[in-house]
Computed example of a mutant assay.
Amino acid sequence: MDIFVLASGSKGNMTLVKNENTSFFIDAGISYQKIESKMKAYGEDIDSIDTLFLTHEHADHILGLKSLLKSGSIKRVYLTQGTLDALNGEIKPFLPEYTIIRADEKFYHFDFEITPILLSHDAKEPVGFIFDDKNKKFVLLTDTGYVDQSYVDILKNADCYLLESNHDPVKLLNSKRPFYLKQRILGITGHLSNEDAARLMNQLIEKEAIWIVAHISEDCNDIFDIEKAVVDQFEDPSKVTIYYASQTSLPRIKL
């Protein structure tokens, strides 16, 4: 399984996953021009990707959705009913065949067993995903204020996690952002802090695994803060290999 992060953060989010049998996008939060450019940089053909998974309807996850659908290459979309209902009228006419998915209900796409995970975010029906092709297991969890403990067992022991580590709470509180925005980010329907993310990852990783650190705040976080949280929260920090995703970095993970 190969994982390509095209973009991550408040300015846009998009990921490509592929194995020997299929390939698909997760979200489309950057412009079509940027999608083309990033795919070219990876040496991948945008027109060869015919399937899209959506996590939720916020702009940083669907900014390029209309243009991507208009291009005609996407033939199948997986999304929740809440996400479908929240899409604006300009996008819906371009939706191809779509499948409504529900949290905790497994389904299959080619040789992938996929489990949607209910997230706590201020969207209509946001989900993360577990992608398991029987050879490797990949978990994508962004955006969420917390992850319910009932999910810990099924999330454990993946080979790779794309999990947000959004902010350092002290930096966020001392920032010039409006107080209502600080409350939103810190709340249970906001985003995971560095400490929360590292604590969760310590629970999930029992063997060596990769953590693609995602959705990093550009002004209320930095790599030093994230790494400090890992050292503070992990019983054994050596069991995790970290990659950082942003708007400009191009992490490619081959599992």
Rank of each mutant, 00 (worst) to 15 (best):
A229M: 14
F224R: 14
A123C: 07
T142R: 00
F110N: 14
Q203F: 08
D148F: 06
A7I: 07
T99M: 11
A197Y: 09
Q233P: 09
L173D: 12
Y78W: 12
E164C: 03
K136D: 14
T248R: 06
Q203G: 05
H58Q: 09
L172W: 01
E195P: 05
T83P: 10
F129N: 08
F224A: 12
Y78A: 04
A198V: 14
T51I: 12
V213L: 00
I117M: 06
D196E: 15
S249I: 04
K75A: 02
M39N: 08
A103V: 03
G190W: 01
T80F: 09
K106Y: 11
S37A: 13
A214D: 04
F107C: 05
S238H: 14
Y42I: 12
L52V: 08
A28V: 02
S10G: 03
K34Y: 11
V213P: 04
K182G: 07
L63K: 08
I216N: 00
K92I: 15
Y32I: 08
N202C: 14
I185Y: 02
G64E: 02
P251E: 10
S23Q: 15
E97Y: 10
K40L: 13
D45M: 05
C160F: 04
K34M: 12
E105R: 10
I3S: 05
K40Y: 12
I114P: 03
I212D: 00
D196Y: 06
L54K: 05
R102T: 14
G9I: 00
H121I: 02
D27E: 15
M201P: 13
P96T: 06
H167S: 08
I188N: 13
R76A: 01
E105A: 09
G187Y: 03
S8V: 07
A209Q: 02
L68N: 06
I35A: 07
D85P: 08
R177T: 07
H61G: 00
E90K: 07
H56T: 05
S246K: 00
G29T: 03
S71I: 01
F4E: 11
H191F: 13
D148I: 09
F94W: 11
P96L: 06
I74C: 03
I226H: 12
I35C: 09
S71H: 14
Y42H: 11
V152S: 06
D232N: 15
S8K: 01
Y243H: 15
L204S: 10
H109P: 03
K38S: 13
Q233S: 15
A123T: 08
E227K: 15
L79D: 04
K70M: 10
C220Q: 10
D222I: 10
K18L: 11
I30G: 04
Y108I: 07
L6R: 02
V77N: 00
K38E: 13
Q247S: 09
I3R: 04
S73E: 08
L84M: 14
L141K: 00
A209K: 01
D45Y: 01
T115E: 11
K18P: 06
F129H: 10
N194W: 07
L155Y: 00
D159S: 09
